[in-house]
Every structure is written in C-alpha cells, then in structure tokens.
Design a protein around this nucleic acid. Structure first.
Lengths: 151, 151
DNA sequence: CTCGTTGCAAAGGATTTGCACAAGT
DNA sequence: ACTTGTGCAAATCCTTTGCAACGAG
C-alpha cells in the first residue's frame, strides 16, 4: 500500500535541474516513504532486503548522497532525534516528532500544536520555525509508569 | 574568578550516591555554566585554556563521562541541535533552544511558549515533554533575509 | 557520446571503552 | 586501605570523499 502512487514529481524535479532519474533514487525515496522515521542505516538495510539474494542494493554512500539530494529537492525531511541517528520521512504529511528519551519510541503529533509558539517566535525573534524538523523529547506514558525514566 | 560560588549541591549530590568530588568534576560543571550551549569539544577546549601551559586539563573521555554524570545528577542538560553536536547547559534556568538551520545560531526562548503544546501532548498521548531538552529548528531572521536559507 | 552517478574502499571526526595507575574518603 | 575516577590509547560508529567504471539522456 505504499508505492502505487509513484511520486510523479521525482523525475521531473530531477530533470528540471539537469539531474538524472536513477533506479537508486527511486528506491531510496520509496524506502523512506514506506519506513516512516528511518535512519540511513535502516533505509540501507531495507533496500538490501528488497534487493534479495542476487539483486544489488544501493551502496551506503549512495543512500547518504541520495537522502541529501532528496531533501534538497524537498521530497524528504530529516530530524535529529537523539544521539547519532537522524531519521528521514517523506514530506507528504507534515507532522512533528515526539521522542521518548528512555525507550526511544517515536510518536507523531499534529503540527498545529506548535502554531501558537511558532507565531510568537516569529513575532519576537523573527525566527521561522520549521515544523517538519521539530522533535520534542520527553517521556512516554509507558516509560513513565514503569519508572524507567531516569536510567 | 569563575568558581567563586562553588555549587554547594555538587559535593553533596555526589556523596549522596557514594561518588566522589573531584577537581575535574568541578571544572567541567563550572565550564558548562560559563559557556552556555557548549559542545563537549568546546568544553574541553575551554578547560585546556583555563589550565594554562603547565596545568593539566581533564581528558576528553573524562569530559564526556563527567557530562553524562552531571546530567544524571540533574545539574546539566543536553540538547541535540543538529548533526553531531549535542550542547550542554547548566540546568539552573530552564529555557528552550531555537536553532537556525542555516547559520547554526542558537537562541533561547521562554519555555512557557510550549506550555500549551505540552499540555495537549500530555492529555492526548500521555507524553511528558521535557522542555529543557527541546530544540526547535528553523531559520533566523538574518539568514532568511540574506537568502542563505537553502544552502 | 557526454556528463551525472554509483560502488568501493579508505579517510575522518566524534564518542566510547578497557585498563592500570592516581586520588578521594 | 578500599573503591571510585582519570588518563591514555585503541576501538567503534557514523558519515564523507576520491576515483574509475557505468548508465541515463
């Protein structure tokens, strides 16, 4: 239920800048869409998996390069949730991320939650908040209850 | 002239857990307080600087270990602002961080800005937001105006 | 055919870990 | 003295880069 709606814009977006549409790029974009909140590492793993035994999956470096490119094209976004693990998600549906500092679980929330804060920041500091990149950390209900909070 | 007012709680906090008060720990804590929003690297540099020629500054690994410890004690907090650069700040005055995705500039804002959002998250998801850890990314006025935004 | 892309492998930077010695209580 | 903490160096992890071969347009 993921890839039937091929992102028409991909090819055009690329050509518009003299760039080329390659299978690797389509694969990476597809993977990001399927695995919401995936790290480059995870995306690479998924691609290997999909490639099967004989198939060849894009190299790690290609994954990184492609992710960077797709982000420049505005097709994906990344967020740093914690230590060394940026996660990417397709930009289709903007949402903000909420990460549990204990278990690492990621939840999504309505971007509108920050509208008020965003407006005040714009007014006070002239700072434009990028809601798609926002990550709030805290403690999820489960961890809070199991007392795992302050590990 | 920096350590006049040694944080009284430090020694007690440590002893309370059977831990020891060492000069390194005092130095690291002092450095974090002085340099608001410093990375471990920056903190290390500062310590070397203060140590002077003959003096010995804490090793990098000690800085990392100490930072982790101080955070566990609740004396400092860290936030991931971007790629590989967690920044630490003394927990005295809670505030949220706003980072410019273009120039990396860090601004502080009133935590109360998020109160509303925090309440809704608590109500909807049972998620407790840790305001001290929050970082919002976006574009600062200067970058927005100079068009450096989409580098 | 031409130039952007990829794969591979090595380079780099940041953070962590094991261990023996030094230091706080 | 006993146990925790530190410094040093090696080990990891994640990401980036150089370069020759490959493939899209």
């Amino acid at each position: 239920m993921a890839s039937e709606r091929g992102p028409a814009p991909l090819g055009e977006r690329l050509r518009a800048q003299g760039l080329r549409l390659t299978p690797q790029r389509q694969q990476v974009l597809a993977a990001v869409s399927e695995l919401d909140h995936a790290t480059p590492e995870t995306i690479g793993a998924r691609l290997r998996e999909q490639a099967g035994p004989g198939g060849a999956a894009p190299d790690t470096s290609t994954v990184y390069r492609t992710l960077e490119l797709l982000e420049k094209l505005g097709l994906v976004w990344h967020t740093h949730l914690g230590k060394g693990a940026p996660v990417y998600h397709a930009s289709e549906h903007p949402h903000l991320h909420v990460v549990c500092a204990s278990c690492g679980e990621i939840a999504s929330a309505d971007p509108a939650l920050l509208d008020q804060a965003a407006e005040r920041l714009a007014a006070d500091l002239g700072f434009t908040v990028d809601v798609g990149h926002v990550a709030l950390s805290g403690t999820c209900r489960r961890c809070r209850e199991s007392g795992t909070e302050n590990a």
